[in-house]
Structure formats: structure tokens, C-alpha cells
Design a protein around this nucleic acid. Sequence first.
DNA 1: TAGATTGTTAATCGATTAACAATC
DNA 2: TAGATTGTTAATCGATTAACAATC
Lengths: 210, 210
Amino acid sequence: MRKSENKAIERLLKYLEYVKNKKAEGQNYVFSHELADFVGVTPAQVRQDLMDFKIEGTPQKGYPVESFFDEVCSHLKCDSRTKIVLVGVGNLGKAILSYFVKRKPNLEIVAAFDSDQEKSDRIYSGTKILNVSELYNFVKKERVKVGIITTPADSAQDIADILIKAGIRGIVNFAPITIKVPESVFLEQIDITLSIEKTAYFAEKIAGEK
Amino acid sequence: MRKSENKAIERLLKYLEYVKNKKAEGQNYVFSHELADFVGVTPAQVRQDLMDFKIEGTPQKGYPVESFFDEVCSHLKCDSRTKIVLVGVGNLGKAILSYFVKRKPNLEIVAAFDSDQEKSDRIYSGTKILNVSELYNFVKKERVKVGIITTPADSAQDIADILIKAGIRGIVNFAPITIKVPESVFLEQIDITLSIEKTAYFAEKIAGEK
DNA sequence: TAGATTGTTAATCGATTAACAATC
DNA sequence: TAGATTGTTAATCGATTAACAATC
């Protein structure tokens, strides 16, 4: 993939959300500046993105909501269902599990895993929790595409290796460590603590400048 | 700030973590390629960063751990303590609260807020939970610098506005909506669901290419 | 010394923005 | 028509990488 595609897809997903709302409201057209405002970019950026994805509008009217939605959805494969597993049922893992219940119909967390025997074979927010020893076979058998890692840092790489060996295609890693994956696996790193630390740094810096 | 500083500071925080570990292990020098490997960038990038922050090394030996640590720490003001409030004590909010207990000594979540009266005046993971009606006065009086927003999307902008009016300098927003802040406030957006959706997209794409 | 690494400049690469004719 | 917006190219901007002399 183009390196740029990462951010472009992020923006596209946000555009889609806006258009989805407008569609529900019965609006027929949207302007680039509306989308720009909603997503927090320039109108020029929006037009560039939409051009890249072959979405066409007309001057003065804007972009037609109906075909915009269909076009982007077919590009993003909105109708396909993606199987996800979550590994590490701590507080963060539970927060994600509980949030996901029926919120995103095309994403399904098919199982969660934890190393703690006590947690195994229970159900949390409608998701079955299995022991991590079953992870490899489950992912392989069910052809799971995405793994979410919410374990402590020291086991994150091991879990990633198991997932990759079992055929996973994308990993979202919340553990505060840079894990290594082959080119053929998409990796998204989310380091919550790092983000808070960074914000603290800039906040203190701004405060100091006043 | 330079726009680039955002990512540079992120890398610097990671370098610091590596160096901290090495210091604890009694190692005296680190090479740029070690840091590069740990953070997931090129050695050239590391040297650029360290040059920008006036950290000097010597050929063949590398960068001295001791002065590296002191230099970066003074730049990042490691010794100063940053006051943080968290708004929205749902599952995600609780996960962050429980994680932060004593984990980061220079960051302190001084209070959490929720609109639910039932949750008020309780203590969770050592952090007092107050009603959101007290937010403005608390932030102003205590001169809190950072706000973490873990509320639903529809109240995120309102909370942000209160925080800003009360004098906050940095916001970490987990609500799935792009909030607007003035130039004088640092904003970090973390959209967990968006990241998972994006990973699902690329995972499906990679799987389709095989 | 030989070899590896630093410091630093230049080159590359790519994303974002500006600009403007065409268009409704 | 007048005015605003699109489609598209060119310009800008900035981050990352390459390259290599200096150095230990």
C-alpha cells in the first residue's frame, strides 16, 4: 500500500460517518467544506481524497450523498464482516469488549483470551473468554483477521507472534512496547500512556510560555 | 510549536524509556541503532532527533547514558508534576484510572468526574470521583493542566469547552468525534474504534491480495 | 591502523495546500 | 448572469533518508 493510504483511509472513514448522518437526515448533497469542518482538515484535502477515490461532485451542488455513500462503502467493503479476537481481558480489554457490543455491525469480536484460568470460560459483554493456550488453534480454525492486544508489555510480542503464525492480517496493539510484525501484517500501535505523557509535556510547555 | 515537534517528542519519550532501562542495567553507552531498533525508526532519524535536542555522542562509543538521561529529562521536565483530571468514569475511564495508579510518578490524576450522581463522591483506584458540575471550579482552583475526556461523543465538545474556559492547556480526547480547541490548547485525539475499523480494512485488503 | 559510528549537509520523498480554469 | 464550488495541476512545505567526512 501507499504509505499515505493509512491516513487517507482514516479520513475516508470519518467522511463516511458524516455522510451517513446526512443521509439519515434526508440531505441529498454535501460540500467539501462541510466534510473538512467535520474531520478537521482543509477543503482542498477533502477534494484531493475524494478525487483519489473516484468520488465526483458537481459545482454549486456538492457531492451527492447517495452515490458517495455507495462508492465509499464498496471501497471500504462496509458489507463484509471482519472477525476479531481480543487478547488480555484486563480493564482496557473489558472496556473495548463492552463498547463493541452491537455498536459496529461489520466488526465482530468473536472471542477474547486471557492467561488467567479464573477468567476462562466465562462470558463478558456477550463475548466468550477462553484461555490463551487455545488462541493459536482458534484463530487458525476460525480464520480470524484482526487481533487486539491489551496484555501487559512483556507478553505483547509473544502474543503477536502467535497471532501472526496463526494467520492474522492486522493487529491493534495497546501494550506500551513497539512490537515487530512482518510486512504482510498491518500494525496499529496505540500507546495511551505515551499520548497522555506527550499531552502533559505540551500542556506544561504552553503554560510556561504564557 | 513546530508541527514536527509532536512526533519528535513522542520518539524522545520512547528513547528516554530505553535509556532509563539501560541505565538501570548499568550500561554506560547506547548506539543510535539500538534506539532505532527499539522505537522502530532508522538510525539516521535517531541521530537527527538527538542533534535537534543537543544530545551528543562519540564515534564508536555511542551516546553516554548518564548525560543523555539528564539532558532529555531536563528538556522534558521529568521532575515537574502535571495535574490531570479525567471526565467520564465509564469502562474506559476506569481502565485509565486503574492503570495510572503510581505507574507514572510525574503525572497525577487529581480527580475524576462523571455526570452520574450515583458515582459521585466515591473513590475508584484511589481517585476521588466528583460530579461534573464541579468540574469548572475544580480545574480553575487547582490549576489543572491536562484533561482526559472519556465521555460519550455527544458531550465531549461541551466538556472540552468547560475545561478550556477553566484554563486547561492540553486535552486527550477518546470520544469518537473531532472536537475543536483554540491554538493555545494542545489536543490529542485517540479514536480507538476508528483505529480498529482501519485495521480491519487493511487486514481484509491484505487477505484479499493473497 | 582499521572499522564502526557520529555529526551534519544535501537529497529525496510524500503529504498538504494553493491556485485557478471549468462548471453549474 | 453572478457567485460559489468542483476538478486538477502546480507549488509549497516538512519530514525522513541518504551520504560521507570527521572521529574515536
